[in-house]
Design a protein around this nucleic acid. Structure first.
Length: 407
DNA sequence: TCTGGGGTCCTAGGACCC
DNA sequence: TCTGGGGTCCTAGGACCC
């Protein structure tokens, strides 16, 4: 088996970097993307200047503002970031076909098979880094190693804007002193458990038998056992169809009015089915999520034998599920969400419903009108009820009284 | 300082079948 | 009247990642 050479590429502070490109006057300023200071929500990205104030992604916006009142707060625009992401991947795909799109701003490249093109892999990795930076206009950090987990950890060391390589045989030296939180898969909950056991460094994890980790964390424990030793044989996953699609909203203020909640549910189903049509997908499972004022979250799921894409049918089921949840509640809702999964691409066949293309053609016609005149140009009667309370922004949807940065 | 949105994967318990 | 064990499907919920 040939030695693998994996390169991990990650755009530095992606959303914030795009905002600076769009508005060069933001250069050098603390930029916080995710919402306005008073809104419910968290920072999704912040520039390195903002990080100096202690701000980081995932931090509630109100706290970001306390730490960094001079920060520039922007809601962000998902479509714009997506467009930059597509350009980013075009550059990478040109470098090697063995590319995994790990997220909007992150990718793995495997150069193992490209020895005849690239005489030196480290030189090739640095070259790819320069190409991305020149063509996209943002800085990236690049890590290289014999597998994915080590390449990702190398990128962490390379940040910001650097290149770092972990060579074969150096794994142990590099891993030993790292904090456990550096290992992907060890989140807040697992950290608490491990720190109670007085384990703070990856090297200290090596003392634990695999069975112990399995007992504590199940399958995830086995992954921790191997990855903490730098062992990772996962292949790259080249692009596949999505496994689920979801849309959800946290309201600016908790909501109790049933008609308004159902109107918002319809709006979410509308946006969700738009995404289904784009990928020509049908769903076997419909799920509704409710988060109450006390932050407790409940979901209801339903399996349908004949997969659905049509907005009206999916909304009907979502409404039933929602009412099952909400009817028994004494609390207002802070969030409502819809999700579909078990997605298939075949046209659904049913013995009982007459075959008809009508809903699909209606959906496509709807998409065409909206492409031209904006999402709000066509709305169902139910969605229209939202106008009573929410201001509608063309091309963005009902954003004013809800959290931002939605698809 | 109350805690986003969009995903993936895993687990546990009950129903049901053989 | 009391009782097995394994396998699979379904629902609910949770950890984690970016």
């Amino acid at each position: 088996m040939p030695r693998r050479y994996i390169v991990h590429v990650d755009i530095d502070a992606f959303f914030a970097a795009v905002e600076v490109l769009l508005d060069p006057s933001l250069q050098g300023k603390p930029v916080i993307v995710g919402g306005l200071p008073h809104e419910r929500g968290v920072a999704s990205t912040c520039s390195y200047e903002a990080r100096k104030f202690g701000v980081h992604s995932g931090m509630p916006l109100r706290k970001c503002y306390q730490l960094c009142p001079e920060g520039v707060f922007v809601r962000g625009n998902y479509q714009v970031y997506q467009a930059f992401s597509e350009r980013f991947f075009r550059v990478l795909h040109a470098a090697t076909p063995d590319t995994e799109e790990a997220s909007l701003d992150e990718a793995y490249l495997e150069l193992t098979r490209c020895g005849h093109i690239y005489p030196s892999f480290p030189a090739a990795a640095r070259d790819i880094k320069r190409q991305v930076e020149r063509e996209i206009g943002v800085t990236v950090s690049v890590g290289a190693a014999p597998n994915k987990i080590l390449a990702k950890l190398a990128t962490r060391r390379a940040k910001p804007a650097g290149f770092f390589e972990i060579r074969e045989g150096e794994e142990e030296t590099y891993l030993r002193g790292l904090g456990i939180e550096a290992l992907p898969g060890i989140g807040p909950k697992a950290q608490v458990v491990l720190r109670l056991m007085n384990i703070h460094k990856i090297g200290e994890l090596w003392e634990l038998p695999r069975t112990t980790l399995h007992t504590l964390f199940g399958q995830g424990g086995d992954d921790i056992y191997l990855q903490s030793r730098g062992i990772d044989s996962r292949p790259l996953v080249t692009r596949t169809l999505p496994k689920s699609v979801s849309r959800e909203t946290t309201f600016l203020e908790d909501l109790w009015d049933r008609r308004l909640l159902l109107a918002h549910l319809a709006y979410l189903c509308d946006r969700l089915t738009l995404a289904l049509r784009e990928d020509r997908l049908y769903a076997h499972v419909i799920e509704v999520k409710a988060r109450y004022a006390d932050f407790k979250t409940e979901i209801k799921r339903r399996l349908v034998l004949s997969p659905l894409q049509d907005m009206g049918k999916i909304y009907k089921i979502a409404e039933e599920l929602f009412l099952e949840l909400f009817s028994g509640s004494r609390l207002a809702l802070r969030l409502v969400g819809v999700k579909v999964s078990d997605l298939v691409r075949v046209r659904p066949l049913s013995l009982f419903e007459p075959y008809s293309e009508r809903p699909e053609r209606l959906g496509r016609a709807l998409d065409q009108v909206r492409d031209k005149y904006g999402f709000g140009s066509v709305l169902t009667a139910r969605e229209k009820m939202l106008d009573a309370v929410y201001a509608f922004e063309p091309r963005r949807g009902y954003v004013l009284k809800t959290a931002s940065l939605t698809k």
